[in-house]
Design a protein around this nucleic acid. Structure first.
Length: 268
DNA sequence: GCTAAATGTTGAT
DNA sequence: TCAACCTTTAGCT
């Protein structure tokens, strides 16, 4: 589900369907009833993605803030919208379409100061126009934590999650275990460029695919889902490049996957 | 049918 | 470092 690419794609979709229109807001589940009532019927001015956060500007200093967390999802559809099924925190509707929001970590109303508080916690976002390579390098190279932990820190780079962490470090042939500050500016800038490329591809494809076609299994049938990654969730399977078994270990509270063969100095 | 894990973050220990 | 929170799904029985 959601790393930064998902959020930016949702922002595009929701901009197309809801911006400039009067939007109906309801909370079938009831947990966001007050917020929905306050915004109901207003015109949506703008949808802005930042890292893994979504901001819906309804004017009058009222901003809907959504963070999907690990399980949150938006389900889109055309009118007539069906009876809400399951726990729908928020439904957005126009006369033509609707989306149902389930399981978000955050679905709240913020004033401009609240928006600023969220944004201040975030580092540069590779998917934004104002995303800055040098600022990313500055923040990354200040960390003494392992590289694989620093990349998960949203204050270092906003929008990167567990899949992009594992896959980008593999593609850079960098060990997740070295201190972030030890990799040097050249590697930091290369990491930024790669993340930018991977995340943009993710927005376009609607999913994370990092493998080169030459490294995907050769089959006549349709591509399998697990062809999409080099190391993510491939514990114990042979590395697609060097055949060393892929290893897994918890780092920064999440399962980190890496190839000890390709990513030098990464014995754990 | 049940359990564990999942592309995440926060707040307490 | 760990539990809590929100929900769905894959992989067991």
């Amino acid at each position: 589900m959601p790393e930064g690419h998902t959020i930016h794609r949702l922002a595009k979709d929701h901009t197309a369907h809801f911006v400039g229109r009067s939007v109906r807001l309801t909370s079938p589940q009831g947990r966001f009833a007050d917020g929905a009532r306050l915004l109901d019927g207003r015109a949506l001015l703008r949808v802005e993605p930042y890292g893994k956060h979504l901001f819906y500007d309804f004017g009058a200093e009222r901003v809907l803030h959504v963070h999907l967390g690990l399980y949150g999802s938006f389900t889109p559809g055309s009118q007539p919208a069906p009876e809400p099924r399951g726990l729908v925190r928020l439904r957005l509707e126009t006369s033509e379409t609707y989306v149902d929001l389930r399981g978000p970590t955050a679905c709240e109303l913020l004033d401009p100061a609240g928006v600023a508080r969220v944004r201040d916690r975030l580092g540069p976002d590779p998917l934004r126009r104002d995303g800055a390579a040098t600022e990313f390098a500055r923040r990354l190279l200040r960390r003494s934590t392992p590289l694989g932990a620093a990349l998960m820190d949203q204050a270092v780079v906003a929008g990167v999650g567990n899949v992009y962490r594992a896959e980008s470090l593999f593609l850079l042939r960098l060990s997740p275990f070295v201190p972030a500050r030890s990799i040097g500016e050249q590697h930091a800038l290369a990491a930024w460029a790669l993340l930018q490329r991977l995340l943009r591809a993710g927005v376009r494809a609607g999913r994370i695919v990092t493998t080169d076609p030459a490294h995907r299994a050769r089959r006549s049938g349709p591509a399998r889902a697990d062809d999409a990654h080099y190391v993510y969730r491939r514990t114990g399977l042979q590395c697609r490049v060097c055949a060393t078994p892929v290893r897994t270990e918890v780092m920064a509270g999440r399962n980190l996957h890496w190839c000890p063969g390709c990513q030098s100095g990464s014995d754990g």
